[in-house]
């Protein structure tokens, strides 16, 4: 076992344990969006889970650290908070805030992270970025809201892990990246109607099981 000291709190973990998971298990909250427990390699995409490790000059994402030897970690230094707040502000600047009409309202990771970091949902000096259409209905029974999506990739990776043929994929590149379902295929659609894990994996309100879609899934059966 390896000893960790996080914010002065002592704990022991098995070697090779992921730092973020270890902290979360101990009840030490570190903001995160793209972390996926079962993933073999971290995505390290949301850039929220920064921590400072004694002896390492710059903050590091906790999801990328495998604990090999004793570490002294701080989760709330000014450098960490500065990066986290900027990352969140950036995500929010590309996010269409309309919580009242969003099905994720009050269960949304963005809301809780904003509260935790004391950042308003409308980030100041950054101007809002217009993103594509309100809702994408390419998938036979899952609606996707690109303007709510934070591109954490949890849906894509969850689907790939549970199913060799992910039904959602990132498309495009850079600021134009969107999660999309491209074309349907009856056998795979049927699997979706039983699985729904991507919808559960979404930390925000960007994927929704379409109510009228439930009917569609039965017609496929």
């Amino acid at each position: 076992m390896v000893e960790l000291i996080v914010d002065g709190h002592r704990m022991t973990v098995p070697p090779g344990q992921q730092l973020l998971a270890a902290c979360l298990a101990e009840g030490i909250y570190i903001p995160h969006l793209c972390h996926l427990e079962e993933a073999p390699r971290p995505a390290a995409a949301c850039r929220l889970c920064f921590v400072e490790i004694a002896g390492v000059p710059a903050p590091q994402p906790a999801c990328t650290i495998r604990v090999a030897s004793a570490l002294k970690v701080r989760t709330d230094t000014p450098a960490v908070r500065r990066l986290q707040r900027m990352a969140l502000r950036l995500l929010l600047s590309a996010h269409h805030i309309d919580c009242r009409r969003c099905h994720a309202n009050r269960a949304c990771a963005l809301q809780s992270i904003a509260r935790f970091l004391k950042v308003g949902l409308h980030p100041k000096p950054l101007m809002a970025i217009a993103r594509p259409d309100e809702v994408d209905r390419h998938h036979p029974f899952i609606d996707h809201y690109p303007r709510r999506c934070v591109l954490c990739g949890r849906c894509v990776r969850t689907c790939r892990n549970g199913n060799d043929h992910p039904q959602f994929s990132f498309t495009g590149r850079g600021i134009d990246t969107v999660v999309r379902h491209y074309a349907s295929n009856l056998a795979l659609d049927k699997r979706c109607s039983e699985c729904r894990r991507c919808v559960a994996a979404c930390p925000v309100g960007a994927l929704q099981w379409r109510r009228e879609g439930a009917g569609a899934s039965e017609s496929v059966d």
């Binding site: 949301c46 990352a87 600047s93 591109l151 495009g172 590149r173 600021i175």
Partner: peptide
């Protein structure tokens, strides 16, 4: 660079866009 950003991580995807703007 903002056109060539892969779009995976928040700082580069969105941050370079704001720099450019």
């Amino acid at each position: 660079t903002q056109k060539e950003s892969c779009g995976k991580c928040a700082f580069c995807r969105i941050g370079t866009h704001h720099l450019l703007t």
